[in-house]
Design a protein around this nucleic acid. Structure first.
Lengths: 122, 122, 122, 122
DNA sequence: GTGGTCTAGACCACC
DNA sequence: GTGGTCTAGACCACA
């Protein structure tokens, strides 16, 4: 599950949880599994999961009920979505455009390739 | 000049030089500026520039003439281009496709946004 | 109602009860509301209220009549008052003095601000 | 140096550094000692110092030069001062006023006690 | 049961 | 040399 060797594990865990929320696995005010549960599931140290949770708290994605665990913040879905969408349109696509002009790749080639990836999923 | 806080500085320097070659700033067998020049220009440690040069040497982009400096290898342009093109189509666009499905962004939105970035440059 | 995230909830509950006694809401040998009542009112776990009660018992502020509930101990008012007064003069004000010297705040500013707060209440 | 048993060590370390900046020990763009140096000096684990540094970064008090260490951010002095001053006037003094009315302590008593503490320092 | 802090120590990338 | 990540494991307070 955790494979990438360059980006920190706790970042990856945080991203997985964010994407789980995006996918509807957990909704507002749902309790997410405990630090220990995640640690067991992903086979990482509880401290590492803890850092992921801290990240998500600072991003307003989850909140804590003391002694009870972490819960999905209401509005988390929308906030993650808009945050990611903005980053995608502003950063990712801007970089893509830069690469395209540098590598002299046309928009048609890009569209064609993206369609391939989309089709694969079906 | 070097702002990104996640990518190693030497990687960023190497990328800048690669892109300068792609842009035609330097051609085959041109001498590129010295380690010191780069270090001064980008306000980084000479060791860091050195490491970028080593990276480019190992990628067959530049070569050294002892006592004289570093020179652009013949065929560097084509090699960079093909290498990057492959990475772009396989990695970047695959990631873009993933984000699109996650964020429910259509290909039309992507094309529209890319056209904006392209137009800006003109 | 309970907002502070650093002080333990049971401590805050105990403080609220103490202050209610200071304010004259409950007098010697009055019965205070049940654990359940408090738990419902402050939306906390009954165990937490229980612990607050235990704290107050050990501070000689309340006592238990088995099967009947908790009652304000006679002399509680005076005991709370003297205990808090001492803590206030020795700890709180000592800390205030430290902050004043660090932040270069004069005693006049402090007095002025305190008067504001006092006036607001009237 | 680190005595308090209730507030986390990393918080105390961060506070010490903040106060050192307030006292003029380190100024804008000064390099502060390394993680390992602090760890040795306060006899705590480097990880603990690291957390303190992260706190200060998120408070815009220090910044990192990759591979070189942490430096005091320009404007840190003013930012710490104003931040603390505000907290003091709004939170601490508001609490003091509350205690005064509860404990029926007059402003004269407070002033007298504060003067005692101030005199002690001289 | 929950989270939170801390240590000791390892290992790594980067400057 | 610098920071940064991670583990294993302990210990504690809180609900």
């Amino acid at each position: 599950m955790i494979e990438n060797q360059t980006v920190p594990i706790y970042t990856q865990v945080a991203q997985i949880i964010s994407e789980d929320i995006l996918c509807g696995k957990w909704k507002s005010d749902d309790r997410i599994p405990s630090v220990r549960d995640f640690a067991g599931q992903y086979e990482v140290n509880p401290n590492t999961v803890m850092r992921a949770f801290e990240m998500l708290v600072s991003q307003d994605v989850i909140y804590i009920k003391r002694g009870m665990g972490y819960y999905v913040k209401s509005g988390a879905y929308e906030s993650i979505l808009s945050h990611r969408k903005e980053a995608f349109l502003n950063n990712t696509l801007s970089e893509v455009a830069h690469q395209m002009s540098l590598l002299k790749i046309t928009i048609n080639e890009v569209v064609e390739q993206l369609n391939k990836y989309t089709d694969e999923k079906i």
